[in-house]
Amino acid sequence: MQSEVTKFLEKNKQSILTQWMTNLAEDHILREELMSNEKSRQQSEELLLAVLKVIASDNFKNTESQEHESVSDIISEVSIYRARQGFTPRETATYVLSLKQTLAEVLDKKFAGDARLLYESARELNQLLDSLSITTFETFIKGREEVIMRQTDEISEISTPVIQVWEGVVALPIIGTLDSMRTQTVMESLLQEIVATGSSIAILDISGVPAVDSLVAQHLIKTVSATRLMGAECIISGIRPEIAQTIVHLGIDLSNIKTKTTLASALKLAFQMLNLEVRKGERK
């Protein structure tokens, strides 16, 4: 880029920053409730300085250069931060595009007389900021994905509590949809608990599973098979009438699996299998 332009931008960086922040405020995308104005200002200043460094460097055309990398890193950080804070994609994109707008305005004012120079500078600036927009888009989505992944992990962790209900009997109430990922977690924690407690009976309660399709049934059958391989028996409880109906309509064979309608009746069966008797005690 022409040194005349880069020098001008460098000298006026404070006013450019002010102008940019003003534009952002006018577009209502500062979102003070998500991010303090000080933080916004600090991030924007960092980004602007990095952009100016790229423009001023000899490596402007070389996108692998250190300057490009550093501006890329900053924009990624900004985007991920915004994704986590809950900014919308539009707000995040507009944030970067607004810098482009501001720079165009500033250059337009100063170099209005020199069309050639203005065109050249605008074109190069566009190129740089467009590539930054793409990076923003990419990292914003990545940031959101991270949030989702973390939540998924948390949910699968809190949603597989294995409870020892009696000596030799563990129960696992499943709440929510059973997908392959969940099944894996459920199976692992159930089997580990069987080993830890030395239990020979495991009750899998599916009252909290909204629907059972052939895939879910397959997952259940797998869990039962794995339990049996370990040397324990598995009872599935909490099968609602409509679920029983679906299972039959889908042609799924659960005849090799012990099933009960309620957790209570499953526990009763477990007592029977363990030769235990539960009686009312005599009142003293």
């Binding site: 894996q184 089997l191 794995a226 391989l229 370990m230």
Partner: peptide
Amino acid sequence: VAITLVELGLTLAGVHTALN
């Protein structure tokens, strides 16, 4: 090992099993 065997498609249906 149990999970892997089931995933592999082997349930050792004819074998009795115990915890220890």
